[in-house]
Design a binder for these strands. Structure first.
Lengths: 106, 106
DNA sequence: TAAACATTTGGCTATTTTGCCAAATATAAA
DNA sequence: TTTATATTTGGCAAAATAGCCAAATGTTTA
């Protein structure tokens, strides 16, 4: 593997890693329905507001979301919405796993 | 968020996490072109064979790949191939990031 | 201008992940 | 049945991640 390819796979992994956290994934799904400000997440997520801010920052660094400061608030929105198209397939994996589990106790 | 929903997001995150590593992602892409045995990865990946085995195990635990022992060798293949459909979008994120980077130095 | 509000950042600890080595296991070949 | 080959597993140290608190920053309101 060339250095260039290695960089490419690291970059791809970074994008996936940014989504690979339950809280971040939930927030990304919310954002795919439209922009939200940090304060809305603070109301809905059971975590310190600094933690929420850092999660959003991880997704921003990965290039998945972008932010927009308006007044006192910062609004986040999806930058590359196709990211969430994937979730149907992730759910297919979960269902496949559930089926395997069910088969074990049959 | 209910406990059930929480479990769901944890399960989804686990699937993403299993792909969110450069080596695992590369291996997953290879597997989406057809099954491969561990020994082939050992030849092509610059990591200890035990490390490779553990990476494959992570993807297996997540339900992304399945294994099949034939003789001395263990063959892995994608279990839910749609997983790799996502990569086009991940690449779109990378391109978007590259564009942003380029804009910085314009 | 001071106080209140929204968010980010720094710092710290706890937890998780990585990746190597060595040892165990399983299968095939000599 | 010893030996070689392929893979997994256990154990450990290093690195990365998560999440809280406190402090800093930027913005509006009183």
């Amino acid at each position: 593997m060339t250095a260039k390819e290695k960089n490419l796979y690291e970059a791809k992994a970074k994008v996936l890693k940014a989504l690979a956290h339950p809280t971040r994934l939930w927030m990304a799904e919310q954002l795919s329905a439209g922009e939200m400000c940090v304060c809305e997440f603070v109301d809905q997520v059971d975590a310190d507001f600094s933690t929420i801010s850092k999660h959003l920052s991880v997704m921003k660094q990965a290039g998945i979301v972008e932010d927009d400061k308006r007044g006192k608030q910062v609004y986040y929105k999806m930058k590359v919405p196709c990211v969430m198209n994937f979730m149907g397939c992730v759910e297919a994996v979960i269902k496949s796993n559930a089926k395997d589990q069910a088969a074990l106790v049959k």
